[in-house]
Structures are given as structure tokens and as C-alpha cells.
């Protein structure tokens, strides 16, 4: 289904023949690959993730400005360090979302994931404390609060 939406978006033509071909092929591809799909999100979850995105974007801007200041500083006052984080999340999808958010935020990057333990490389003391204060994690735990745990 999602593939069909993607087809419509990239072809951007709304004639019947294109729509029909797209429908056939997207269902074929989805049917071939159906063994992989572990996680089928529900509608309310999508809504919550959409509401989470603006906050994540605010975080991205904040830490981008901080990182730009670090890079442009003539003395290069960086202090990179590895931080190990134990998260309390109980879902594969939630851990994936957490890792993606951490990597997407400039200044921090996920190095290693082992079920729900993450090793994070942070650029500075301030940024690593930001990770350890677990703001992002509590937000994500809030998103997934009434799903079945599978980890």
C-alpha cells in the first residue's frame, strides 16, 4: 500500500493506465517481500510520530547551531566521547526510531545497537549530557506506550 502511494508520488501522473500498472506492480513487490515485514504500524501511531517530528526538528536546529559554533571556533574546542545508553524501550521499531533520531541530530551519532543498548558517539560534553538526560527516549516511550512489547 505504501508502495502504491510512493508510485503515485514519483510518477505524478493520474491517468488510468499508470495507476493500474502501479497498483499491479506495487502489490506484486509487496507480495514477494511480505516475509520481511515485522512491524505494521497502526494509524494512531502514525499520527503520534507525525506529531513528534516538529519537536525533533527543533532539536536538530538547536544542536546544529551549537555544532556550527564548535566547528567555526578557531581553537576547535571539541571533546569527543563514547557514551553507552541503556534504554527502556521495548520495541524494535522504537529502538530504530531512537537510533535514527540520534543520528539525525547533528553532533551525536549511533555507533552500535544491541537489542536495547546503544553506544553513542557525541562531539562534546554538552551533547553527551543531552543524550544521557534521555529527552528523546521519553518522548519515544510516550509514542509507543500502548503497543505490545516485542523485545
Amino acid at each position: 500500500m505504501a508502495l502504491f502511494v510512493f508510485w503515485v508520488l514519483i510518477s505524478a501522473s493520474f491517468e488510468w493506465i499508470h495507476l493500474g500498472l502501479g497498483l499491479v506492480f506495487s502489490f506484486a513487490v509487496a507480495w514477494i517481500n511480505s516475509g520481511h515485514s515485522l512491524f505494521v504500524p497502526k494509524f494512531r501511531l502514525w499520527l503520534r510520530i507525525l506529531l513528534y517530528l516538529p519537536w525533533l526538528f527543533y532539536k536538530i536546529i538547536e544542536s546544529s547551531l551549537y555544532l556550527s559554533k564548535l566547528i567555526l571556533h578557531p581553537a576547535l574546542p571539541i571533546d569527543p566521547q563514547l557514551v553507552s545508553v541503556d534504554s527502556k524501550l521495548r520495541h524494535h521499531a522504537a529502538v530504530v526510531l531512537l537510533g535514527n533520531s540520534i543520528t539525525l541530530t547533528p553532533g551525536t551519532i549511533t555507533v552500535e545497537v544491541d537489542s536495547n543498548k546503544l553506544i553513542v558517539h557525541a562531539m562534546d560534553k554538552v551533547l553527551s549530557e543531552d543524550i544521557e538526560s534521555k529527552q528523546i527516549e521519553s518522548k519515544i516511550a510516550d509514542i509507543f506506550k500502548d503497543e505490545e512489547p516485542d523485545l
Binding site: S64, L67, L76, P80, T103, P106
Partner: peptide, 25 residues
Amino acid sequence: VAAIGVVRLPDVFSRSHAVSLTDSL
């Protein structure tokens, strides 16, 4: 800023931060 960072920073891990800066913002 990201290009300056990619040239200036000392190792792979910190350079990847600069690349992610470009990519995201």
C-alpha cells in the same frame, strides 16, 4: 560550515557529525 568541518576535524567519527549536519539541516 559542514565542508569546513569535514576538512578540519581530526577523525572519522567527528567528521561524520559534519556530514550529518549537511544532510539534515
